[in-house]
Computed example of a mutant assay.
Amino acid sequence: MTQGTSAQATIGDSEFDRDTAVTLREPGVYDTELSAGWTIINAVNGGYLLAVIGRALGQALPHPDPFTVSAHYLTASQPGPAVIRTETVRSGRTLSTGQASLFQYDEEGREVERIRVLASYGDLDALPDDVRTSAALPAIPPVDQCFGPQDAPAPIKGSTAITDRLWLKLDPATLGWALGAPSGKGEMRSWFGLADGRDADPLSLLLAVDALPPTAFELGIQGWVPTVELTVHVRCRPAPGPLRIAISTRNLAGGFLEEDAEVWDSADRLVAQSRQLARTPLGR
């Protein structure tokens, strides 16, 4: 098994599935518990949060798979209880569209909206096989020539709990930041999987696009890079095996940058794409 674990978890029976579980309270309303196991530095990972909401929408809508999911991150989420309120906007033959918001409670017990999502769901297994693309597979060295968080010369300040749940092997060409010599290119590439060996599915792709170190590190910027908006396109159901992820930033201006991500599966297919706008420590 690629991740090297002793007992491989399966889709539906893994830590990721348990930590993204939602419980129906009433029609359209789901309770969940945000796990501290998916935090990095001082924040709950945005891709993990999107997967939690994505699971609720997958239960609320008549179609099973996320095709496009757009999220605006309004306030910082904290580990602990949360409620997701969903609404079906439109239900068609091949696509259904819904919206959802995740809420938590402040110290006075008032609901605070953390994230608002608009998404369209369909059936990935019903898509035709016709592919016409100019996208190129990212050039990442073999796994044994790449490096994971355990190889870092010094730990990242704050929580790194999420790295215990991921299998990451990063391209050395994008690791200058870890050695104090960032390349300035704004690129990050890595092999990716879940640490317990669970294969990827459409829901975990929502996590994958936001699971690598931020490209800001290779631009010489350290610290938390909070997501403002994230849109994910899921293109097909991933084949079993490790994923390859390539992320790039072309423009950092005014304290904000964009990140464009591509996710490729073990069958060399482009299975997900994303773009996010994130805030950097510059301009704060």
Rank of each mutant, 00 (worst) to 15 (best):
A139N: 12
I140S: 11
P141H: 04
P141E: 04
V143T: 14
D144H: 13
C146D: 03
F147I: 13
F147G: 07
P149Y: 02
P149I: 06
Q150A: 13
Q150H: 14
P153V: 02
P153M: 03
P153H: 09
A154N: 09
P155V: 11
P155F: 11
P155N: 10
I156N: 08
I156E: 08
I156V: 15
G158M: 09
S159F: 09
S159A: 14
T160A: 15
A161M: 04
A161K: 11
I162K: 12
I162Y: 10
T163Q: 13
R165P: 06
L166S: 06
L166E: 01
L166D: 12
L168Y: 11
L168M: 11
L168S: 13
K169T: 00
L170H: 15
D171K: 00
D171P: 05
D171G: 01
P172T: 00
P172G: 01
P172I: 02
A173L: 10
T174D: 12
L175F: 07
G176W: 07
A178T: 13
A178K: 10
G180C: 03
A181G: 04
A181F: 02
A181R: 14
P182N: 02
S183D: 13
S183R: 03
G184P: 08
G184S: 12
G184A: 06
K185W: 06
G186A: 04
G186E: 06
G186L: 02
R189V: 07
R189H: 13
S190A: 15
S190H: 01
W191D: 03
F192I: 07
G193E: 08
L194I: 06
L194P: 02
A195N: 04
D196S: 05
G197H: 06
D199G: 14
A200M: 07
A200I: 04
D201L: 10
D201V: 04
L203V: 10
S204M: 05
S204N: 01
L205K: 11
L207D: 03
V209A: 05
V209H: 05
D210G: 10
A211T: 05
P213W: 13
P214V: 05
